[in-house]
Nucleic acid binder design. Structure first.
Lengths: 139, 139
DNA sequence: AGTATTTTGCAACAAAGTTGCATTCTTAAT
DNA sequence: ATTAAGAATGCAACTTTGTTGCAAAATACT
């Protein structure tokens, strides 16, 4: 069974052409993708609405996670295997946004440090996005 | 001279009715605002386009800063006095988003801890958004 | 293979954001 | 106070982005 197939099966999703394609796009991307990035790659194959719904489904199943942005274009990235199989997220890594190439990526090896909130606040999730120049663009 | 006037003057912006009104909205808000929040408050007074352009101008002048989100509705918040006067941002506090009331706020007293990036990456800005339950909603 | 269920595509719509241009308002200098 | 130059605003038209309902097609299960 292919990798995309097993990911879908493990999330008890039916295996359809569009889901396979979109998962493939994520697997072959080395950075996080916005809805638009996906649309550009497969708008001729699949309807825009299908892409919206597929991303929504993947999010709910924990196959992808979303990365906040200040440009009104939320990025999505594949969760790693451990994350997917454990059922609930441990999306505790830092994200990096490169000002030069514009790419957003997961720094899987950089953990988000903990912070102490003021009295009365209850923490559920932390998200950290660092911007600057990435490895490739700095060379 | 009123507070809004001096803020505008200090940023060498001309003092117009819409700018004063929008600044006032920020000053009297106790949380970060999305474009839509502003529009709801003054769409009958000022054109939608004016609000877009005003927010853009305030951002560029460093009067407000933006807070990344995963809901495609970037929030804006007033920079504190020190931040505005220093000319360039030290937007180094943590932001909090409450899952209950939906409000986003600046935790001015909580500094973002530093992180060590992998070799080859250059850091410029850090953004941290914590979600959970806020002081008011937890009571 | 046949059927219940899920997913997709289409159409129509709503909301969000952008651009150019004519008019109005601000500013700063007389 | 008046006025001229420049900046900001409103309007219209448009593009892009996101949503919803429903019929048709595909999938999964027996």
């Amino acid at each position: 069974m292919s990798k995309v197939q097993s990911i879908l099966k493990n999330s008890s999703l039916s295996v359809t052409a569009s889901r396979k394609r979109i998962l493939d796009i994520f697997l072959s991307a080395n950075n996080a993708l916005a809805h638009q990035d996906i649309e550009i790659k497969c708008a001729d194959e699949y309807d825009r609405v299908t892409i919206y719904r597929t991303l929504q489904t993947f999010l709910e199943k924990g196959i992808i996670h979303n990365i906040p942005t200040t440009d009104n274009a939320v990025r999505y990235a594949l969760c790693n295997d451990a994350c997917i199989s454990s059922g609930h997220h441990h999306d505790n890594h830092v994200h990096f946004r490169c000002d030069v190439c514009g790419k957003t990526l997961c720094l899987d090896e950089v953990m988000i440090p903990s912070v102490k909130l003021p009295v009365g606040y209850a923490m559920k999730e932390i998200n950290m996005v660092v911007s600057g120049t990435c490895k490739t663009c700095k060379k």
